[in-house]
Design a protein around this nucleic acid. Structure first.
Lengths: 199, 199
DNA sequence: GTCTATATAGAGATAGAC
DNA sequence: GTCTATCTCTATATAGAC
């Protein structure tokens, strides 16, 4: 509204944040690779060169987008490690994670799911959201847990992404997705508790 | 083994099926857009032109891959529509779907998840696996079900993809994934039944 | 059926004026 | 901070020889 150099030229790109916003939308809709820098700049009403002033290259745009998300997962891991290890901790932590899911985080998740190859490439460099998540799993499950148990914990935790996947191309709203995730986590952690002599 | 013109030239591309196999791997690992036709042909030990003899363009390769999968979903829909509508049908149908999941289908699912943008593009043209799946959901849930209920059914059904997502980048085997999916479906449909006055 | 050679287009990225 | 102009590279796809 009243920023320093806001003399209002065009309804277009004045800031880095606007670029990121448009890029987020396009990368999610068309995919990262299929979206050219030109696509982004045109959606903003500027030329490619303008973007290269704000970002060194195309990958830095998507990397900026992901950076915030990494931080959130780190905070979650920190919170969990500060908790006493009770049997209900998986459910509690997962529900806490779901409850704290903002529309922005959902948008990031959609971005990540729509662009798994780039995300993997970014992980190899620095980012590593999955890696941070593995840390969380490690805190929740015992050391001598087998893959089967670890996977069950991951699924109980990962219900937002699962709901997002199931909601793809349907009329489900963000609210629907989060509510479905919450219920799924409850159901999956219920199974967990009563699963002493199964198999 | 003993095909007509199998005089065995090289350990390379003699058939369409080999091209599809290599393409499946590369598209899943690096992503469809990031994989060039040249990448595929070099992995086979031939030139690009050889591939253009078998496929009209790059997209036709991925379309061929997806075509088989569409058929499987159609068969499922046919089976479901032939069943009496009992309360336990969701669970039964989902478990049947999971039980019938071959390594090939899992590979296709990984491909689809790694390349959502192309898959969407293909759907707009002809394919439409998600559309076929919506048909299945329509058969399982009542007509006057709200988004929330439909989403719950989709999630109970979609546990293989959810497990695949959760297993990403871990040591989980295909067997682990399917077993986790089976358990998740059981847990999610258990919630379904006892969910008369929730909310 | 696979090759070499090439047409064509579009991508990411930079230089330098304003 | 954004522009125009341009460089360079690599992609898809085709033509025509063998």
């Amino acid at each position: 509204m009243s920023s320093p150099a806001a003399r209002g030229r065009r309804p277009a790109a004045e800031t880095r944040a606007e670029i990121l916003g448009v890029a987020l939308d396009l990368f999610t809709e068309k995919g990262y690779e299929a979206t050219s820098v030109r696509d982004i700049s045109e959606a903003l009403g500027v030329t490619k060169s303008a973007l290269y002033y704000h970002f060194r290259n195309k990958e830095e745009i998507v990397a900026s987008l992901v950076a915030e998300r990494r931080e959130e997962v780190r905070e979650l891991a920190a919170w969990i490690s500060a908790q006493p290890r009770t049997p209900g901790l998986v459910r509690e932590a997962a529900l806490r994670w779901i409850a704290g899911t903002t529309p922005e985080r959902l948008a990031m998740m959609r971005l990540a799911q729509a662009n798994q190859p780039v995300m993997r490439r970014l992980s190899e460099d620095a980012a590593d959201v999955p890696g941070a998540f593995e840390e969380v799993v490690g805190l929740l499950v015992g050391e001598h847990a087998d893959e089967q148990q670890r996977l069950a914990v991951r699924m109980a935790f990962d219900t937002v992404r699962a709901a997002l996947l199931a909601a793809q191309g349907t009329a489900a709203t963000d609210r629907d997705v989060l509510e479905a995730a919450r219920r799924a986590t409850v159901a999956l952690t219920r199974a967990e508790e009563g699963d002493t002599a199964d198999r």
